[in-house]
Amino acid sequence: MSEYTPSQNIPDRQPPATSVGIIGWVCKNLLCPWYNAVLTIVSCWAIWSAVAPFWEWAVTNASISLDPEVAKQHTGAAWGFIRDMWPVFMTGVYPAEERWRPLIALCIVVVLVSLSLVASYRRSRWLKILWFVSPIVVFALVYGGGITGLPVVGTHYWGGLMLTIMLSIVAMLAAFPISVLLALGRTSDMPIAKPFCVAYIELIRGVPLITLLFMASVVL
């Protein structure tokens, strides 16, 4: 029998299939030790118990017909209603013949957000100018009147996703300068500004957001 010498090349042996790849990860993290295996089985059972009824309701027994009589024959979701009411979900009770206006406003917002996510455009001056001008353009487009020559659509007709996006943009644009002023006021030595800023910040941080929303809906 020949003895082993360092000059001999012995091919590496492949690791067991149960210790590498997906199978290895499952065995290491989900099945070992034994209590992980028990937790995995219980979790799979809980997920299946929740997903299976939802799948039957959303897919298996669902209906996509707009006919109410056909929808009544199914015990699942009536997706036809969602398809029929989709414009209402997007723009609320905004006049049907003028719904192209909030659609264009939404496209403007999507384009600006997309450009802001690109690093090469994020610091450009013209993008900041567009963000500064966009609320005015969007409001003029959706509200109408004035130099636009479009029919006026009152704010009581606004709703749906359009209103949510507009309020989000206004809140984000207004929150940044206000937060900077509050932070500066909190760190200042001014006897009036500092207590006011501290009280406002602690009030907003300490009160649940849902409470503020309810108060705003009642007061306003």
Rank of each mutant, 00 (worst) to 15 (best):
V133Q: 07
G76L: 01
Y94T: 12
Y121P: 03
A71S: 11
G146N: 14
A140K: 01
P95Y: 14
S124M: 11
V93C: 14
D84C: 06
V109C: 07
A96S: 02
D84N: 08
L112V: 02
L103E: 14
S124E: 07
R101G: 02
S116V: 06
R125D: 10
L66W: 11
T148Q: 05
W131F: 04
G145S: 15
W131T: 00
I147H: 10
W131K: 00
T148G: 02
R123I: 04
P135Y: 10
A105L: 07
G92T: 08
L112C: 05
G149P: 04
Y121M: 09
F81T: 00
A77W: 01
G80M: 00
V88R: 13
R125V: 08
L117G: 00
H74L: 09
I82N: 08
P95Q: 15
F89H: 09
I104S: 03
M90T: 11
E98N: 15
L106R: 00
L127R: 06
D84W: 07
S114W: 05
V88C: 14
L112W: 02
L112D: 01
P95I: 13
R123D: 10
A119T: 08
L117I: 03
K72I: 07
L103R: 15
L106F: 12
R122Q: 07
T75K: 12
P102G: 08
Y94F: 15
P135S: 12
H74M: 12
V88Y: 11
F89T: 11
K128Y: 05
P102Q: 09
E98W: 15
R125T: 12
S63V: 05
A140N: 00
D84E: 12
L66P: 04
C107M: 10
S134E: 01
E97N: 09
Y94K: 09
A105T: 01
V93T: 15
A77C: 13
W100D: 13
G76V: 02
L103G: 14
R99T: 12
G76I: 05
I129L: 10
S114G: 08
G145W: 14
R83H: 01
R99Y: 14
Y143C: 12
P95W: 14
Q73W: 08
R83A: 08
A77M: 01
V70M: 02
V111C: 12
S120G: 01
L66A: 14
V110F: 12
